[in-house]
Amino acid sequence: AETSGTFLSENFSADLIATHSEITHSAVTLFSVRHGRVVGSRSWILDRADVLEGESVIAAMISKIYSELDAPSEILVDEIPEDAEVIENWLTEKAGHRVSVAQPLRGDKLEVINTVKRNANQALIQYLSKRSNDSAVSGRALEEIANLLDLPELPLRIECFDISNIQGKHMVASMVVFEDGQIKKSDYRRFAIDDEAGFDDTRAMHHVLTRRLKRYLAERNVDNSEVSDLGGARPKFAYPPQLIVVDGGAPQVAAAARALAELGISDISICGLAKRLEEVWLPESKEPIIFPRHSEGLYLLQRIRDEAHRFAITFHRSKRSKVMLESLLDDIPKLGESRRTALLEKYGSVTAIRKASASDIAMIPGIGSNIAELIVTHLQSEAQTQGHINMETGEIT
């Protein structure tokens, strides 16, 4: 567990409790501080379905912890429960001395409670990571998704699509795949989208789904055994998903449904997961599907959507970085198209080429030592004028 390096007075003794919650579970971490030193720490995982409606996680855990442990005079928490006065009275009566429950808002105590909260976060991440590989848990989540979305079969293969751009520029899309509720990175795909097409997110979603599903239609009848006998690789898009998830609400779902309809595909289900309220949308539905409060199915859909977003953002950053390098190389004299192409293929980003020496650059066919020195000199002068821009991401720092 991470412990706080904050100096606390030798007169300070208290228990510090903090929580971190996701849809299905919460982690609660306790630090016991006596005479200014952390003398013990412990974490609990709580299934949120076991928490009473209207009861906070911190209130539920205080009751659990101090039914087993003796309460000190002071308990510090990361959030005050609504029934704090009732809890204080119960603790005081049980302990035989006055017990206060408070939330630190500044100073050393706040720093320590933030450390406790980070430990709770790590405890929950570790638990959920192990749990995500549990086939029984994944099976229950898939059954719940199938039931609530009225799917004809379990969605054993789910593909999720996400669009990433900044003000319509450098647009990219990602496709991530989960099979049997588990990540299948070997089937992930990225789609570059031409900025000249002028797509917004909705039209881009239609475009990408059309590309992916056209590939499926072209490859679905390929004989994999024949391809294998000939030493070839299996087609990348030959397997259809039972469920396509798009990042977005009703407009994105409608665009995806239109792509399937135009290709004559009727045996693949679609839903959208909107970020704002985590609503699940179906085609032609006027109202979203409401999953239970701490649903395993909703948690799985969130994991899939968040993974698609992460994968799209990673691709988007690399594309922006390459575009920035292309722009920078255009300004360097004596660099024709073939030389720029060779540099782009070798380095791919401004950051990478700036780390290269002139001798390294000179080894690229067609460059030579004189042009390499010219490139290095130009990059150094450019760095002085662009010193406050992150050349990896394009962000102002």
Rank of each mutant, 00 (worst) to 15 (best):
A173Y: 02
S32Y: 03
L91E: 04
V38P: 01
S186A: 12
H378S: 08
L329G: 08
Q122Y: 12
G231E: 12
Y188K: 09
A60V: 13
Q252D: 12
T3K: 01
W44V: 01
A257T: 01
W281M: 07
Q126H: 09
E326S: 13
S13T: 15
R140I: 06
N147Y: 07
I371R: 05
S63F: 03
D180V: 01
V99N: 08
E159Y: 02
L263N: 06
A120H: 02
M391Q: 14
K346C: 04
E85K: 07
V280F: 05
G368Y: 03
R258T: 12
T202H: 11
A173H: 04
D201S: 08
A1G: 09
M363L: 12
S174R: 00
F237S: 13
E2I: 07
D247L: 09
E179S: 11
L301P: 05
R303P: 00
H207E: 13
N121R: 14
S132P: 04
A254P: 09
F7Y: 13
F311I: 11
M363H: 05
S135Y: 07
I62G: 09
Y127H: 03
A60N: 14
A60K: 14
I367T: 00
A146F: 06
L149T: 02
L128A: 01
L149D: 10
L301W: 11
E219K: 07
K286G: 15
T19E: 14
M175K: 10
V208T: 06
P235W: 11
I166F: 14
A356H: 07
S4R: 07
L243V: 06
G107K: 13
I367R: 01
D134Y: 05
D70P: 12
L298N: 06
I265K: 00
F311T: 13
V245P: 09
I163Y: 00
A197M: 15
H309Y: 07
G272C: 04
